[in-house]
Amino acid sequence: MENFPSIQNILNDFINHMEERQPISASDLPNIDLYMDQVTTFMNSHLEHSKRYPEDKILTKTMINNYAKSRLLPPPDKKKYSKDHMLLLIFIYYFKNILSITDIQKLLTPMTRRYFQNEDGTDMSWLYSHIMGQEPLQAKRIGEDIRRLSEDALNIFPDADAGDQEYLQLLSMVALLSCDVYMKKQLIEKLIDSFDFPENETDEKKKR
């Protein structure tokens, strides 16, 4: 038990960081079009906090090219990427950690068709700001859930040997968090599967 506070400190530090961290705002993005190198530099700088290891890459040229080939990302204009491209890349970055490319394509294709470079006021910045504006509240809710879960993990093995307590509490915490992520991932997939997405452009072209 004496080493358990080290685990608890990690949780508290993570929760505090999560609640204090502000998401990238649409207003943080440049209002000028950027070349690919500028895009990757911006993304790697502003999302550096999410790296596990210092050498990890947030976004690379290869990733961007693959997103374009998968029709996740509209082609750049004269090799320059707009603010809408940047906002779409942020969505892709968060979703790719949970969803397959196929599911991301299903989910984002209607958004791209409707809001990408739209000029009637309901554009990508409008959409992004409404969704990301909920992130601070969601971070607080998740922090509360993690604290409750950590209390449960602490009490799973109350009678275990003192020398095993730290490992068993770590194992319990990881197992409960994994169960949470697994069930939420399944729910996300069911939500995507239940929605009647418009046919993609390739299918539409085949019918013409």
Rank of each mutant, 00 (worst) to 15 (best):
F42E: 01
F42T: 02
N44Y: 01
L47I: 09
E48L: 11
S50T: 12
S50Y: 14
K51A: 05
R52G: 13
E55F: 13
D56E: 05
I58W: 04
T62C: 13
M63Y: 11
M63L: 14
N66P: 05
N66K: 14
N66M: 10
Y67N: 00
A68I: 12
A68V: 08
A68F: 07
R71I: 00
R71M: 09
L72P: 03
L73K: 05
P74G: 03
P74T: 00
P75E: 11
P75T: 12
P76G: 10
D77G: 06
D77C: 11
K78D: 09
K78H: 13
K78F: 04
K79I: 11
K80R: 15
K80C: 02
Y81Q: 02
S82K: 00
S82F: 05
D84A: 04
D84H: 03
D84L: 04
D84Q: 09
L87Q: 09
L87Y: 03
L89D: 04
I90S: 02
F91N: 04
I92S: 08
I92V: 13
Y93Q: 06
F95P: 04
K96I: 07
K96S: 12
N97K: 14
L99C: 07
I101F: 06
I101T: 10
I101E: 01
T102E: 15
T102K: 15
T102V: 13
D103G: 12
D103S: 14
L107W: 03
L108M: 13
P110R: 14
P110H: 09
M111Y: 12
T112M: 06
T112V: 12
T112R: 01
R113K: 15
R114C: 06
F116S: 06
F116N: 04
N118H: 02
E119R: 12
D120R: 09
D120H: 07
D120N: 14
G121I: 03
G121H: 06
S125D: 03
L127R: 07
L127C: 08
L127K: 11
Y128R: 08
H130Y: 12
I131Q: 10
Q134A: 10
P136M: 08
L137Q: 15
L137N: 15
A139H: 07
R141V: 07
I142L: 15
I142G: 06
G143K: 01
D145W: 13
I146S: 05
R147I: 03
R148P: 05
L149V: 09
S150W: 05
D152M: 14
A153M: 01
A153I: 02
L154A: 13
N155V: 00
F157H: 11
D159E: 12
A160W: 00
A160H: 06
D164L: 10
Q165C: 08
E166I: 07
Y167V: 05
Y167H: 10
Q169Y: 09
L171I: 04
S172N: 05
V174M: 11
V174N: 05
L177R: 11
